[in-house]
Write a protein that binds this DNA or RNA. Structure first.
Lengths: 112, 112
DNA sequence: ATTGACACCTAGCAATACTGGGTGTAGTAA
DNA sequence: TTACTACACCCAGTATTGCTAGGTGTCAAT
């Protein structure tokens, strides 16, 4: 159901989840799913590469640990990541408002 | 300023503009720009191929005409296009609501 | 004569979400 | 003991799609 609608917005979503409190990849997926009310059910192949990308750009920092015999990589926001989250947030606001305006200009008959 | 944020949402926007009243490519660009309050200032290389794609999928139908010595291709929604607009609209609603939920779960200090 | 708005087009590039594969641990059910 | 599920990580390759950068041509204004 996720489709490819979140192109360009995935980073914002991930940063938002990790900002809440540091989380490892699997927990990020869970967080996105639960917080969105099951709308975002992202495959691992989407989230893990995104996390790597974000770390490479210096927006996230990670640490390995072992919990219950399983190795985990826990991510948290860097200063740069916080700034980026703020900026992306504003961009989203701007973007979604603009979409609403465009849609608002279109008459649409009683939704069947 | 447009960035690549509208990936996956461009079709919705175009359909919405054309639904208002049939328009040619250049007018679609103008419509998006004015309706969005200058947020969406899309290059021709983005819009024209999208229009072709939409026509190819049967969501739009076009007709050539000549106005003031210039040839125009005017697009209008097909029945299928109307259904698609409705569906995409709902998807957008769903999507943007979900994003808001995810963001809402994140505490954010006083915006500097 | 040249510039700018109008009006169309396309090939190739770049970014990025996803598919489909892989590794390994722990717990539970058969 | 075996099998299956949840947990937890990884990567190569694909596909979609918006954009860059080029092109053609008309008309009005400077």
């Amino acid at each position: 159901m996720s489709g490819q609608a979140l192109k360009g917005h995935l980073d914002l979503l991930i940063l938002a989840v990790v900002a809440g409190d540091p989380a490892h990849g699997y927990a990020v997926i869970e967080g996105l799913r639960s917080r969105s009310g099951d709308v975002f059910d992202l495959p691992e192949g989407t989230v893990y590469p995104a996390l790597h990308r974000l770390e490479k750009s210096g927006l996230l920092r990670s640490e390995w640990s072992i919990v219950g015999g399983r190795r985990r990589r826990t991510y948290q926001l860097t200063k740069k990541g916080e700034r980026s989250l703020s900026a992306e947030w504003h961009k989203w606001d701007n973007f979604s408002t603009a979409v609403a305006k465009v849609l608002g200009g279109t008459p649409w008959p009683a939704t069947t």
